[in-house]
Design a protein around this nucleic acid. Structure first.
Lengths: 266, 266
DNA sequence: GAGTGGTCTAGACCACGGG
DNA sequence: CCGTGGTCTAGACCACTCA
């Protein structure tokens, strides 16, 4: 029939019904009236609560799904998204000294404990992705070695770690082996005469690309944190570009700065 | 009628039609067959292309909207999402210039780029949000001063910058004024006897909360980069907690490291 | 088997903005 | 004005999983 939305006589409200549903339940979730893990009413029940048909109910629920607030678990219903493991990811260079007791406890709480990590490594030789070519200063036709790792925790995908090296630089080296390199690829690079003494880090947030969705098994409403590292030799030659793709809900990057403090990290 | 999806005889394919539509156009977008700013066919035309009804077409398009790949612009159609300003955000510690008149390095940066920055400042005294209370080591009943800034570039919302201070610490000081503090709030804090000599940075990616959606005027498929800074005095007392909420599509955090190189930033 | 969400149809009327 | 997307109805059949 398409009677449009329910307008309260004389009122200005014109919020679509499915938005009203989303607003209502979003509020319940952020105020923790509904806590992580709690079940929402069924689509049917919501339809009765708001006097709307199932299609409209689903429009409203889809909003919340895409905001990452709820997850559908058929045939058990919709659930407020549980808090996932939040892995604190300390950055190499920054010291991790005992901070205040509060901070320590807080760090402990969030650190991975008693989990079983695993990873899968593969190596390809490919034309570089645009951003990688840019950072490594490569030209049309140049090839790179892509050393790709998928990391799991308790068999759940956790993050991607793809490192790219100019093929010309490392051809014939062990970096091409799709196995773990105990002393680290950076050391291996150094042994080839390309020690890195400087790095540029880029961090951004975005929705995952199709490939990332597949590899990390991501659902809707799940952004990723992308951490790109470009390493330079003493001659300022870029020799490595690593792209870390971290599942947003499972990671917090953490680092620490001491004195110098120009203050305004804004 | 609900005939279910089109199954190719003898084939295993069982991908829902709306997913097929999304897959098809997602591919065109990531391969740049459709470039940013290009218009997609109308819902009607897509329905004919895939032999599905409008409702199903809309399901497919909604997927792409929520992935941040396309934006609907009624009544002109759907468009491949244009690239937005990506502001490289250098972190304080690595900046070249010495603490220039603190006032607004942010605004300076923007002006240099030929943009017109502006900001709106407001100050409230409130019970601290949970995460802030945790970081500042506050107890139930304690109050904080929330110094909130919304920053705009060319009148478009750009990011949020909310700083929290224990009310007990700064009551009566100029930090309570909802105006710019030329020498910087950190200097003002220092003048009160709370110079910060250490800071902990946390960075994460997530979908925006309702409040953030409002303040930053965000649409679907637009995650935020959250940068939280906690500042400590020489006595390791936390005196400031700043929460930066950056629109994902408009920011890249950038920083640089030299030597020391523990290497594995993984 | 019963009940949940997943997919799809075939209509309808509305709101908005560019020509 | 007209075409676009925005909202909504009232059905239908399917797939999965849990009791």
């Amino acid at each position: 029939m398409g009677r449009g939305r329910e307008r309260l006589v004389g009122m200005a409200s014109a919020r679509a019904m499915y938005h009203q549903l989303a607003d209502t339940y979003r509020a319940k979730i952020v105020t923790e009236e509904l806590k992580p893990g709690d079940r929402l009413p069924t689509e049917q029940e919501l339809g009765e609560e708001f006097n709307i048909t199932r299609g409209t109910v689903r429009d409203g629920l889809k909003v919340l799904v895409n905001e990452g607030l709820i997850v559908p678990a058929r045939p058990r219903g919709y659930f407020v998204r549980p808090h996932e493991l939040s892995y604190v990811r300390p950055q190499a260079e920054w010291r991790k000294q005992p901070a205040s007791p509060e901070m320590d406890r807080w760090m402990e709480d969030q650190t991975v404990l008693g989990r079983t990590p695993s990873q899968h490594i593969s190596v390809e030789i490919i034309p570089p992705p645009a951003k990688v070519a840019e950072r490594l200063g490569l030209n049309e036709g140049d090839l790179v070695v892509a050393r790709r790792r998928i990391r799991y925790i308790d068999d759940e995908p956790f993050n991607l770690n793809d490192s790219f090296y100019s093929y010309d630089l490392i051809k014939g080296s062990e970096i091409l082996n799709p196995t773990d390199i105990p002393r680290g690829t950076n050391q291996a690079l150094a042994d080839l005469g390309y020690e890195q003494v400087r790095a540029i880090d880029e961090v951004e947030a975005r929705m995952p690309l199709p490939d990332e969705v597949n590899r990390l098994q991501l659902g809707p409403g799940n952004p990723v944190l992308v951490h790109r590292v470009t390493g330079f030799t003493i001659d300022d030659k870029p020799v490595r570009c690593t792209v870390n793709v971290l599942i947003g809900s499972k990671h917090v990057m953490l680092f620490e700065r001491s004195k110098a403090v120009g203050g305004s990290v804004s």
